[in-house]
Amino acid sequence: MVKVVPLRFITYDPLKDPSKMIYRRPISKPVKAFKGFFSEFLGTLYLVYFCGGSVCAAFAVAGDSAARALLGGLIQGMALAALIWAVSGVSGCNLNPAVTLANLLSGRVGLIDSLYYVAAQILGCIAGAGILYGCLPNMYRIDLGVPHLAPGMNTGQAFLMEMMLTSILCLCVLGTSVFNVWDRRLNRIAPFAIGLALFIGVAIGFNFSGGALNPVRVLGPSIISGVWSHHWVYWLGPIVGAILAAFIYRCLLQERFDVIERPGYIAPLIDPSTAVSSY
């Protein structure tokens, strides 16, 4: 029986104790599935909170429309980068049904996994929009940041813009964290690249199509605020963009590689029964 460590009065850091080492136990499938579900839920909650909130902040005062696009894209891109960094070790951290679809088509996520990831994302977006609704006073809610089409934009043009911008985002996800066999350590900095891709996408689309790039980012605020105009554009555009990105990478750009047994590998002589505590 491994004793769980309670709160401490004095900090203890095992990395500074030369007689101890950290051993990662294999995680059982149900626990891993629950952690993945919860991290997708919580990550999407925070993401929708910041995506909707960035639009409310950008329109809270009278200001320049270019500066609004800059602020909106900056907040959303940086929030996504930080969130991916935080929970990428727990789940694949999709936070976006379009990215989940791209991962599914690229073979990184299984079908059942992707289904409950999307379910967690839908629950998370509703919770995030609800929290945002509760936190902001009436004068600042601004439909909780539901994206709108600019005057003169028709749905075909908006669809094409959302599709292209989401393709860039999904290409960034696939190129930096899925198909990165040329340098696996790119995973550590990949969240920043993905955040930059969202930043440029939202900055460009902010004043034209609303720059959603994420179906649940629109679904949550729409459910809470009741604004549903042109809602299908923000589902079909990102989904087609994800399919396009997955096709480009998997069929045209992917590098061929083989998976072999590591030569000379010897399992370390570790005895978990000597464990004195969880950490």
Binding site: P18, K20, M21, K35, I270, D271, T274
Partner: peptide, 24 residues
Amino acid sequence: FLSEKVLLIDRPYTDFHRSTYGTA
């Protein structure tokens, strides 16, 4: 909810030098 339960075990080899800071 999210933390990974890792075990703290004795190092497999025992002839380390305690004078080394954080390194066996």
